[in-house]
């Protein structure tokens, strides 16, 4: 809490009086504010306790058992975790692949989203149409999207035709162990529309006066973008970053529908954490083992998210301090 934030309510109260009463008043106001906070936040707290907390605790317990989801679970202590970390090579492959996927798709998605939002923020004719076209891919059901993506990525498909025009011999994408992850990243970039929606909505909220003033000062549009738009957007960029990390680490359906089957690249090239976990839980009936995977994944995501929050203090520009 900054000094400013602490001082503000005191100033707002502005009741003249001796120091002790002012302090007592401050304290009671603080208590009232805290009460209001818990009152306002109570729907989420209640929902969490009722719908999420029990199942989460249950999965922690299950991760310490050999539960097959049908018969009585046997307690096995940390055995699942030990096996995952020391014996199961797929776990480490999946983790490596997932980090690779996230490390590229998240920043790339953010940059492209920001760039598109900036373009759409201009006074473009038919901007409704452009916005719709860019958001549209996120609406297409996955069965359809996966099917057409397989077609686009065929060795002699349209994407490679396009690359061929530029004189680049295209890879075999989904069949090639080194190109299957970039293929998945491409699919994630195709759905960049939802990040763009938020960035654009936030851009619309930036006071125009800032740009007018910068214009008078002779700042170029590029400069205005970096010194006005981006700083003003940092809370939303930060939101997209954190949600991007959380989402990317849990990538599932795309991997599942694009990389399965005998005619695809070897699995170790594309296996990711949640598809790995899903197989263990619902194809192999190792629910306890799958629960252990999910909690290790939780720790990994938590780690990266905390790093994001740590660095946020340096670059996220809040109108007011929210910490």
């Amino acid at each position: 809490m900054t000094n400013l934030a602490e001082a503000a309510p005191a100033r707002a109260g502005a009741a003249p009086g001796s120091a002790p009463t002012r302090l007592a008043g401050l304290r009671s106001r603080r208590r009232k504010e805290a009460l209001w906070f818990y009152l306002f936040a109570s729907p989420w707290i209640v929902g969490f306790l009722v719908f999420l907390f029990g199942p989460m605790v249950a999965s922690i317990y299950l991760s310490l058992t050999d539960w097959d989801s049908f018969t009585t679970p046997n307690f096995v202590g940390l055995d699942n975790y030990r096996q995952l970390l020391t014996e199961d090579p797929v776990f480490w492959t999946a983790l490596k692949n997932t980090i690779y996927y996230s490390a590229i798709s998240v920043p790339l998605g953010l940059l492209i989203g920001l760039w598109l939002a900036n373009l759409l923020n201009k006074q473009v004719r038919a901007r409704k149409l452009f916005r719709t076209l860019i958001y549209l891919p996120t609406l297409v059901p996955l069965v359809a999207a996966a099917m057409v993506f397989k077609m686009v990525l065929m060795p002699s498909g349209p994407l490679n035709d396009l690359l061929g025009l530029a004189g680049i011999p295209g890879p075999t994408w989904l069949l090639d162990p080194t190109w299957v992850k970039p293929s998945l990243i491409l699919l994630s970039i195709w759905g960049v529309g939802s990040a763009t929606v938020l960035l654009l909505a936030a851009m619309k909220g930036i006071p125009k006066e800032l740009y007018e003033a910068a214009e008078v000062d002779g700042a170029s549009p590029m400069r205005q973008f970096w010194s006005i738009t981006v700083p003003q957007l940092t809370p939303i960029i930060f939101f997209n970053l954190v949600m991007g990390i959380i989402g990317a680490f849990q990538v599932f359906s795309q991997v599942y529908v694009l990389t399965r089957g005998a005619t695809q690249a070897p699995e170790e090239a594309s296996v990711m954490m949640v598809p790995f976990l899903f197989d263990q839980a619902f194809a192999f009936y190792h629910m306890g083992y799958a629960s252990a995977i999910s909690w290790l994944l939780f720790l990994v995501i938590l780690g990266f998210t905390l790093i994001a929050f740590r660095t946020a203090r340096k670059w996220v520009f809040y109108e007011t301090e929210v910490k």
Partner: peptide, 30 residues
């Protein structure tokens, strides 16, 4: 409330809010 109001335990609670999204839904499904 999370953005503006001040209360003890708020930041910890906020981390819980974020953390709830880190557990794959597949695992809490049953």
């Amino acid at each position: 409330a999370f953005a503006r109001l001040r209360a003890p335990g708020k930041n910890a609670l906020f981390m819980v809010v974020i953390a709830t999204m880190m557990i794959p839904t597949q695992i809490t499904m049953i």
